[in-house]
Design a protein around this nucleic acid. Structure first.
Length: 209
DNA sequence: TAGATGTGCTATGCGGACTA
DNA sequence: TAGTCCGCATAGCACATCTA
């Protein structure tokens, strides 16, 4: 395998960065601008080399048809989708006894997303209270089962008196807990500290398009 | 629906480095 | 020194999509 030139490494890094930021591949002209190259033919020339060397795959039939072929294939882990999260409906969070319970569904996610944490489960979101945090109705949130959380963390909070579970950001105030929605149209929920039980914190989101 | 724009690609040629 | 290769620039074509 040939050693890549600086320009080829720059293009490869740009492809990775663009993919992570936008979740779709760049055009040749995006690469041109992003890498400070002055001609599309230079981009094409270097993409041909990257393809030949097995760093990328190109589909010339479609626009943005550049696919990164990472050498270290990402490991995929299966996460159980154990229920829904929405105000008013309790969520069946697994305990140590019920961890192996039958899930509604399973989702496959990159191990990078779960960062090898244990006790990770998924919940399907019902409602739009976290829409400003880019969590919409139908999305799936990856949760880690924890008993406590830091201020500002997004959690599944069990309101004992109301018998409800809700997905909100947690803030501790003097003598109460504020559960803050990420939706300008919605008011925060205030509750006594002993009425709130943290069931898990959000570690990732799988968005529905 | 026509023109504008975006995108991918090719043909051609130039300059520098290397080699026989 | 001429030939070859590499990396690049310029010009322009074809096609798809957008917009007035």
């Amino acid at each position: 395998m040939k050693v890549l030139s600086d320009k080829q490494r720059r293009i490869l890094a740009f492809l990775r960065r663009f993919r992570e930021e936008k979740d779709y591949p760049p055009t040749i002209r995006d690469i041109l601008k992003g890498c400070g190259i002055s001609s599309t033919s230079v981009v094409d020339y270097n993409l041909k080399i990257l393809e030949r060397e097995g760093h990328i795959r190109r589909d010339r039939e479609v626009s943005r048809g550049i696919e990164l072929l990472d050498k270290e294939r990402r490991r995929v882990v299966r996460v159980p989708v154990i229920g829904y999260i929405a105000a008013g409906e309790p969520v069946p969070v697994p305990t140590s006894d019920t961890w192996e319970m039958e899930p509604l569904d399973m989702v496959e996610v990159s191990s990078e997303l779960t960062r090898n944490m244990d006790r990770v489960f998924a919940l399907r979101v019902k409602g739009t209270s976290m829409i400003d945090a880019l969590i919409n109705d139908g999305d799936i949130v990856l949760m880690q089962q924890v008993a406590t959380a830091e201020d500002g963390e997004m959690i599944a909070a069990w309101l004992k008196a109301e018998g409800e579970t809700t997905l909100k950001k947690l803030y501790r105030e003097r003598d109460r807990i504020r559960l803050q929605p990420a939706n300008a149209q919605m008011e925060p929920i205030y509750a006594a500290p002993d009425n709130v039980e943290v069931q898990g914190k959000v570690v990732g989101v799988i968005r529905q398009v």
